[in-house]
Design a protein around this nucleic acid. Structure first.
Length: 547
RNA sequence: GCGCCAGUAGCUCAGCUGGAUAGAGCGUCGGCCUCCGGAGCCGAAGGUCGUGGGUUCGAAUCCCGCCUGGCGCACCA
């Protein structure tokens, strides 16, 4: 914002004028309390000590030396221990309306990312069962984080990694083969460490229906081989379907098997060896991860010659780097947090910058319905699937609920609240605000896109709610930028709820159509509608014209 | 035992990189419907910011100890 820059520059100059040669860090920001103005600075407090004067006296001097262009500030006050508060001139505020309408669906976007190439990897579930609510939270968060980065001028790739190799797939094959036997009416038990969920029985029945009952008579090695292929294929298809319904799509699906096919493991190992961060001991190959802050060194290749889970993961992230990404952000379940230091250490060992790799941890989700917790556990095969949740609450509510809390907070998903069509439901509340703004245009038989700001806006829109609305609208781009910087989409849901609250209050208190202020209020309604729509779209949630 | 994350209103959670009187929603209590949809709006009560120290003009925020909870500490994935 222009006013912001002008004020900061004037403050710097004023500090020099009163004899401060080296300026320490100071703040100029929007105060929480509107009574403290539109902007406030702690400049006087941070330089008071060096000057050997009380902060308030310093503030007086600063204000006296302050030289600002006309039309920016209405009033300057000194308050509290020595804060200087700025109240912006009305024309500064009303400038937001034409800005919103001119930018349209791009309002809120910026180029602070400067085209930086970022890979956002999320969901990355093993193809061994249906996605559960925890995956849903990761999916919503990953997708929203990717959108935030996209909106702030990063070049984003949404990516999903599929572990289609390794022992968990062997377990899947053995479990499925057992289910095939059961489906054919024979006694068979799910092996130790296998997958007990009912879903594999369904897959087995489909196999027999399609391939014939003779399938169950195949030799065990052949049966396992086929089960492996069919199992991965059908469970992946199921997961992809769930994600599609959830509104998530990926630019890249990366298969673990590709790492082996393209010899990426060997290449990575050679790299690490060349940089002298590996060594052999007890027949195994180790990564010197303690050199980079890990608790202990980690095995990459076991003494039986097979690789640990860490090895392909390092190769995978090396491949991301080779593909030209400047940052790799992974959304992981919090149960993997012990793993972060290892991958981070491996990235260091490969010589990558410290900020290349970042893991965002997503805490587990508890689902409550009717005052009771719905349990889930992949091991026992009982869990709340993403599909069931979405079916019950709808995509919008599910996504919104996953996004409205910080990813690293444990949170309780209240199914009854998510389904509620009252103001107690935050998704509903925000969408309703959008529908109301839209409703005004429907009644007026006008296209919101057709309204154009007029010069009189600033002198006509003077009600407190109108001032508040304009301030909120002006804050949106900053909220998006900050949310992208911290990878925290909940800042956007919080913002939308605040904007919706003022919009509802305004709508309730004032009429638009047929009033003397109709023209200006239509502009305001169009701008509010636009920002609500933009915020919702950013999060992958629909903005209905009517509810 | 060691490590990571957390502990803020009855509940679910915000609190920006240290700022002014700690916020919101739900719930509770009390008001408001000739209206662009009341599927809504307004107000009130409610907090020793887990705890004890420290740093400084100023700490929910930074540092240290302790208590409580979650998770992680494999040649498993």
């Amino acid at each position: 914002m222009k006013a912001h820059e002008a004020i900061v520059r004037a403050l710097r100059d004023a500090a020099h004028t009163i004899g401060v040669s080296t300026l320490p860090e100071f703040k100029y920001e929007t105060p929480r309390d509107p009574a403290h103005g539109d902007g406030a600075t702690n400049l006087a407090l941070v330089i008071a000590q060096a000057l050997g004067k009380p902060p308030r006296a310093v503030a007086e001097q600063l204000v006296g030396a302050l030289q600002l262009p006309a039309g920016i500030v209405k009033k300057v006050e000194i308050a509290g221990p020595g804060f200087i508060n700025f109240f912006l001139a009305e024309e500064q505020l009303a400038a937001v309306l034409p800005a919103v309408l001119a930018a349209g669906e791009r309002y809120g976007q910026s180029d602070v990312g400067r085209g930086q190439r970022v890979n956002v990897e999320f969901v990355s579930a093993n193809p061994t069962g249906p996605l559960h609510v925890g995956h849903g939270r990761g999916a919503a968060l990953g997708d929203a984080i990717a959108s935030l980065l996209d909106w702030t001028g990063h070049a984003v790739t949404r990516e999903c990694y599929v572990n289609d190799a390794g022992t968990q797939i062997d377990r899947l094959a053995r479990s499925l083969w057992a289910r095939v036997q059961q489906a054919a009416g024979r006694r068979a038990e799910i092996p130790e460490g296998g997958y007990h969920g009912e879903y594999l029985l369904e897959v087995a029945e489909r196999i027999l229906a399609r391939e014939g009952r003779a399938f169950a008579d195949l030799s065990e090695p052949e049966g396992l081989r086929r089960c492996r292929v069919i199992g991965v294929q059908s469970l992946r298809a199921e997961q992809e379907e769930d994600l599609r319904e959830f509104g998530v799509r990926f630019d890249v699906i990366f298969l673990e098997s590709r790492l082996y096919q393209e010899k990426l493991i060997e290449q990575t190992l050679a790299d690490l060896a060349k940089r002298q961060y590996t060594y052999e001991q007890d027949g195994a190959l180790w990564l010197k991860s303690t050199a980079f802050g890990d608790d202990k060194d980690r095995v990459l290749r076991k003494s039986d010659g097979t690789y640990t889970y860490l090895m392909p993961d390092i190769a995978y992230h090396r491949h991301k780097r080779e593909r030209g990404f400047e940052r790799a952000i992974d959304i992981w379940g919090a149960d993997h947090h012990g793993y972060v230091a290892r991958v981070q250490a491996a990235m260091h060992a490969l010589g990558y910058p410290a900020d290349f790799f970042r893991a965002e941890l997503v805490q587990l989700v508890r689902v409550m319905r009717g005052g009771e917790e719905m349990r889930f556990s992949k091991r026992t095969g009982e869990f709340v699937s993403l599909r069931d949740l979405v079916q019950e609450t709808g995509v919008d509510a599910a996504r919104y609920f996953f996004l409205m809390r910080r990813g690293d907070s444990q949170f309780v998903f209240d199914v009854d609240l998510a389904k509620s069509q009252k103001d107690e439901n935050p998704v509903y509340y925000v969408q309703m605000a959008h529908a109301r703004m839209s409703g005004i245009f429907k009644v007026a038989a006008r296209d919101p896109a057709s309204v154009t700001p007029v010069a009189a806006d600033s002198s006509v829109l003077t009600q407190p709610e109108e001032i508040d609305l304009m301030k909120e609208l002006a804050a949106f781009p900053g909220v998006v930028a900050r949310a992208a910087e911290t990878l925290e989409p909940h800042r956007v849901t919080g913002y939308l709820e605040g904007l919706a609250r003022i919009a509802h209050a305004w709508y309730h208190k004032y009429r638009v159509l047929g009033e003397p202020e109709e023209r200006e209020r239509l502009v305001l309604a169009a701008a509010v509608r636009q920002v609500l729509a933009n915020g919702l779209r950013l999060l992958g949630i629909t903005a209905p014209e009517r509810m």
